[in-house]
Design a binder for these strands. Structure first.
Lengths: 233, 233, 233, 233
DNA sequence: CATGAATGAGTCTTCATTCAT
DNA sequence: CATGAATGAAGACTCATTCAT
């Protein structure tokens, strides 16, 4: 807020070059800090991460942190905003224009998200949120609204579309959407929390492959098959 | 407020009686403390829970905590031990003796665990572990070994049995087991972290019902059907 | 608040003595802390006094401070409350019952307050308030209401009484009351701020003696008076 | 908000003109900074005023402050020097040449100073000094020497002159001089610290009028005097 | 001369842990 | 065994001061 880039074009006239260098640095700072914060929040959790550590890893002093983010909590919120929201936006934009079937779209989403969660800077967020949501209800609210709500909405719409076209068996998209992402989240969390100590227990890639297979088979309509054993749960 | 001085006048009557009460209390203490710790860890996370709060909710003094648990971390480990491990044991014992089909067994497990995760004292643990695993690798290891490893092992065995008997389509139990619990964990976390702020986004019961339906349909073998569109993902 | 002395009489039965000692210490703590805070606020001002210093001078640890006062500001408020308000109460109670003339009463008050302001623990307060009133409007309000307002009210009542009885020349007590205390405040501040560096500039006792003389002469009515009652104070 | 970029386009016209403006500005800078510092010290006290705020209110950058004043403390010293000392000089010069009586001179001084203390830039100084004298003994010393000592000296000389001429009753000017300024200081402080929160408690003008009346009556000699010259101020 | 980004020492406050009673 | 007053290390945040541009 105080760091608004006022009159950005003006400086070009005089010693524009020197300004340029400064400006580039100044503009890069928030990103560097966010990257440092992301990796530390992932490793240690929100509460256990000290601002000193963030500063050190970002290569700046403690005071500089507060030049760009007014508090630790705001730093985390900014992380959520910059790391997650754009991804959701991308997918939301994808849906209406997608040419293929609903199953293909789900396949695409699961595969892509599965890849994204490998990025520590992104996988961190769900992990931290799970741990800290109770302490910071406004963060939880923000995340629930901006990320989860919209992501589930997009998925539910896809599923409902598949149901309407007869591609999927009858069900409510709202009740099925969480099933699509549940294993993705589990894998993201797993990678960050348990894979380091027990790499043998789970092979994320094999699990995700099986997830897609099982999910789409499970969504398929009855057709003329005789697999009508499972009625009510 | 929570620290109601229950039965304050009782002890005055006689030593025998008061001692009885004392003794009974004394044995109950660890359990009361664990219960208090569990609910607080759930609500606020491990780092944000103060020993003061635990003492208050347990109705004892802060010093008493340290009579039973040498540190906050040990308190948490004890919580994991007492709250989770027995449940896993119970299920592990169930598997070999179970008379029904593999699908029935999975149905039983999912339903039962789904109910269990409603108990805040138990739902807490995964949530806290996710958030704190990075800080306390030995806890993560302990939990990965004692709980996750064994739980997944049990599930994998069931699935492999179902595959062997032709009840399920060919797959590795190891790769499928996580799919059984992923939505269960998601619901447990959801209940604790986001349900309070966005109760409209998800109906846990409906999701779990759909989970069971989708999962078992997805596990079913091909039979003589023509749903052979999904080969490799 | 959390330190409520519940069931204070009960302990007498058992090891009452040991409790006694503890209790005495615990009860003395707030006073010791207030005394330390008072002297430090006097010497250095509110903002420049570190809680570390207060703790050290009070002979306790930093944490102990927060056991009794939830913040630095509350510590200061408590100081105002305990150091000043009772004195004002004492004088307010004095006025209606006083047998002598209005002049005698003013003489008594000025002399007594003059003595009181020698006590560093009390002289501190006006000094600090002057410096910090702008930062802590609620403290200023509290002090203006509880101390200044009431003190001026008492003095104004005395003066109005003197005017009514013909002992003083016609004037409004409200406009004259501040004149009574102005030199007292000046002396209090002087003692704390400038006496140490320039002890020669002013002799507080001689000034106060002259103040009394000048004030009561100045209050005397015109007329054919022989107001030679006030000799030396 | 206070930092309005006044005349932003002016400099673009020509170098000669812009340089003029610059030069004029440059000379005005110290005064602008001092004015900003004065108003802020008044409002918030010395310690609670940030150099950021001073810079902003003065309309310059933080770095510029240090171009003119090497430190916060020196800034304050300069404030004392420029705001107060000249006033005292003016009065000191007045005394020997004054044609009227001692009472008239005191009347003049009290009235003038009473007006001056309305200027926030000047009323600030005593207020701040009171609060900070303990922290900055050299400031206190400087102020006690340069301002208080000389002011009291001037007043004492006037009073001694009045005593010598029989206009005043016998007394030491040194002991009476503080009485002249005590209510003035009280009013100055009052205006800054308490008038905002309790405007009803005191009417500074009425009090000062009564002060003059009471003081001069109180200074008058006993005897068969007819010093009934002073009616209303 | 002027700027404002960067610094880091210093301060308030919290909380796990200890120990005299 | 139980208590709770006391401790002090640690962390978030502020702000006077510096210096490259």
């Amino acid at each position: 807020m105080t760091t608004s880039d006022e009159t950005p074009g003006m400086a070009e006239h005089g010693h524009g070059q020197s300004r340029r260098v400064r400006a580039r640095r100044k503009e890069a700072r928030p990103g560097e800090i966010l990257a440092a914060a992301s990796s530390l929040f992932t490793e240690k959790g929100f509460a256990a991460t000290r601002m000193d550590d963030v500063a050190q890893r970002a290569g700046v002093s403690k005071g500089t942190l507060y030049l760009y983010f007014p508090s630790k909590e705001e730093l985390f919120k900014a992380l959520v905003r910059t790391a997650i929201v754009p991804s959701v936006d991308r997918f939301a934009a994808l849906v209406p224009a997608f040419p293929g079937s609903a199953a293909d779209l789900i396949r695409l989403i699961v595969t892509t998200v599965g890849t994204i969660t490998r990025d520590p800077a992104i996988g961190a967020v769900p992990k931290v949120l799970v741990g800290e949501a109770g302490n910071f209800p406004d963060i939880a609210k923000f995340y629930a609204d901006e990320v989860i709500g919209r992501a589930l909405g997009v998925l539910a719409a896809i599923i409902d579309r598949g149901v309407a076209s007869g591609e999927f068996r009858p069900m409510l998209g709202k009740d099925a959407a969480p099933l699509v992402i549940a294993p993705l989240l589990l894998m993201a969390v797993w990678r960050h929390s348990f894979l380091p100590v027990r790499p043998d227990l789970m092979d994320p890639d094999a699990v995700l492959a099986n997830h897609l297979e099982t999910l789409l088979r499970g969504f398929a309509p009855d057709a003329t098959r005789d697999v009508k054993t499972e009625e009510k749960s």
